[in-house]
Amino acid sequence: MLSLKKSLDILKKTNALLEGHFVLSSGLHSSKYIQCAKLLSFPYLANEICKSLANKIKKKYNKIDLILAPAMGGVIIGYEIGKLLKKETIFCERVNGKFKLRRGFNIKKGANVLIIEDVITTGKSSLECVKLIKKANAKLLGFASIIDRSTIKSLKIKTGIISHLKIEVPTYSEKQLPQKLKSIPITTPGSRFIK
């Protein structure tokens, strides 16, 4: 099992842990942002984190039929976990602002589906994926992510999340911004607002 210190060292080494003023895809503001795409751009460093997450998933679920990942952030981690667990892995992508299955992907009726993301803050993207699972009359097993940065206040998911790392980073609505954060220029990372 990878230690917290070693995990944070890998995130910093790959420039995946950023500091500044960010508007997250949830619309919330934060002083930190985890850009897992940077972590995953170094497969040899991300490998240990992926193995750790895959082991946690194996301990919790023994019957996974399919892994579903939301594009963009979940695509690579979904692929890596699917490879480690030897499971079919598909992704959904936004079409006119809503997640759809494309590219010939489908979810079989009755399939046990695990949703995998890079980072979960509110769980909004994951809950959008749940709609696709329900529409297919399949079964949601649960949620997994490299980083869980949710709080009881922010999380819309009511099921437990399996994550490699739980990071507590305060988030704020625009109306509740601390003065220190207001003075830093805003960066809008993520892919939810990409047209």
Results as ranks from 00 to 15, higher is better:
1 M>R: 13
3 S>H: 12
3 S>F: 11
8 L>A: 02
8 L>H: 09
8 L>K: 14
9 D>T: 12
10 I>A: 07
12 K>L: 15
13 K>E: 15
21 H>T: 08
24 L>G: 10
27 G>Q: 10
29 H>P: 07
32 K>A: 11
32 K>S: 13
33 Y>I: 11
33 Y>M: 12
36 C>W: 03
40 L>K: 02
43 P>Q: 12
44 Y>R: 14
44 Y>C: 10
51 K>D: 13
52 S>K: 06
54 A>H: 05
54 A>K: 06
57 I>R: 02
61 Y>M: 06
61 Y>A: 06
62 N>Q: 14
65 D>Q: 09
65 D>Y: 05
65 D>I: 07
67 I>H: 00
68 L>A: 04
69 A>D: 03
70 P>A: 06
75 V>F: 02
77 I>D: 03
78 G>N: 02
79 Y>K: 10
80 E>P: 00
80 E>S: 10
81 I>W: 01
82 G>V: 10
86 K>G: 09
86 K>M: 10
88 E>W: 05
90 I>N: 06
91 F>E: 07
92 C>T: 09
93 E>C: 04
94 R>K: 15
95 V>S: 10
95 V>K: 13
95 V>A: 03
96 N>G: 11
97 G>N: 03
99 F>A: 06
103 R>S: 13
103 R>F: 11
106 N>P: 00
107 I>H: 00
112 N>A: 00
113 V>E: 01
114 L>V: 05
116 I>F: 00
118 D>E: 14
118 D>Q: 05
118 D>P: 07
120 I>W: 03
121 T>S: 15
125 S>M: 07
127 L>M: 14
127 L>A: 07
128 E>Y: 05
128 E>P: 08
129 C>L: 01
131 K>Q: 13
133 I>G: 02
135 K>S: 14
136 A>Q: 09
138 A>C: 05
139 K>F: 06
139 K>D: 03
140 L>S: 02
141 L>W: 02
142 G>L: 07
143 F>E: 04
149 R>G: 09
150 S>Y: 09
151 T>I: 06
154 S>Y: 09
155 L>G: 11
157 I>P: 09
157 I>Q: 08
159 T>D: 15
160 G>K: 15
161 I>E: 05
161 I>Q: 02
162 I>C: 06
162 I>N: 06
165 L>G: 00
165 L>E: 11
166 K>F: 13
166 K>C: 00
167 I>N: 02
167 I>E: 10
167 I>K: 08
168 E>M: 07
169 V>I: 15
169 V>R: 04
170 P>E: 12
173 S>F: 12
178 P>V: 09
180 K>V: 11
181 L>G: 04
184 I>F: 05
184 I>E: 02
185 P>V: 11
189 P>H: 12
189 P>S: 12
191 S>M: 00
192 R>G: 00
193 F>A: 02
195 K>H: 09
